[in-house]
Design a protein around this nucleic acid. Structure first.
Length: 222
DNA sequence: GACCAGGCACATC
DNA sequence: GATGTGCATGGT
């Protein structure tokens, strides 16, 4: 499995080159994007972030001071806007109370402490937490998302039934804990997921077409 | 007009 | 602990 995960990285990397993932100018913008992209298309998230920028709302205290209705209107394009307004507020409340609103201050804490406390924030689940930890706080965590699972499944890797943490552990034990590489790897998975594994017919020209299939239950490729 | 997109919390069994 | 459901927009 270790070899396969390294091979996937090599193939995707050769195909796409550097992705410079994640889109976002500041750690706080990255964290906001992580919340807004939950079950949403990034195109719509961009719109919402643009609205926040225009409204000078891309700061934790500005979000906390903003009336509900105004915040929700700004978030509308990203979908689930009432839920996401609440979730953004939860995160900002946490950030302000615990780190005086400073992402840099937050990033100074060790990973073992940060991840559990992030997961306690309402609206921050495993994937959102890991997005923030890796891309905004530069911590060596591997981000698992729908694309990750889909790509592995479609290429016959025995990951069916694995939970989030299990899948994350798989990558983190197989690969060296290299923040820059983890960032790129996830970016490459997003690229490949959008290009080849999104809908049928898939894998026309897929860079992973030559991937050797491992032992274990091989899933049928749709 | 369905179906989908980088989840998560909460209810229920 | 596993499984189901609500949340909402914009593109294909």
């Amino acid at each position: 499995m270790k070899d396969t995960l390294e091979t996937i990285y090599g193939l995707l990397s050769a195909h796409y080159g550097p992705t410079h993932w994640w889109p976002g100018d500041t750690p706080f913008e990255i964290a906001v994007g992580a919340v807004l992209t939950q079950n949403a298309a990034w195109r719509n998230v961009e719109q919402a972030i643009e609205n926040l920028k225009r409204g000078k709302l891309l700061r934790p205290r500005a979000i906390l001071a903003c009336p509900d209705g105004k915040l929700e209107e700004a978030l509308r394009p990203s979908g689930y806007f009432r839920v996401k307004a609440k979730r953004l507020r939860s995160f900002c409340t946490y950030l302000v109370r615990r780190y005086q609103g400073s992402m840099a201050g937050m990033a100074r804490r060790p990973l073992e402490q940060l991840r559990p406390e992030l997961l306690k924030v309402n609206g921050i689940g495993p994937e959102t937490a890991d997005d923030i930890l890796l891309y905004a706080c530069e911590k060596p965590v591997f981000v698992v998302d729908a694309y990750t699972r889909r790509i592995l499944e479609r290429h016959g890797l025995p990951v069916a039934g694995m939970g989030y943490e299990e899948l994350r552990a798989l990558f983190e034990t197989a690969l060296a804990p290299d923040v820059a590489m983890f960032k790129e790897y996830h970016g490459l998975i997003v690229y490949a997921g959008k290009d080849f594994c999104r809908r049928k017919p898939h894998c026309e020209g897929c860079p992973l077409a030559t991937l050797p299939v491992e032992d274990g239950p091989v899933l049928e490729t749709p």
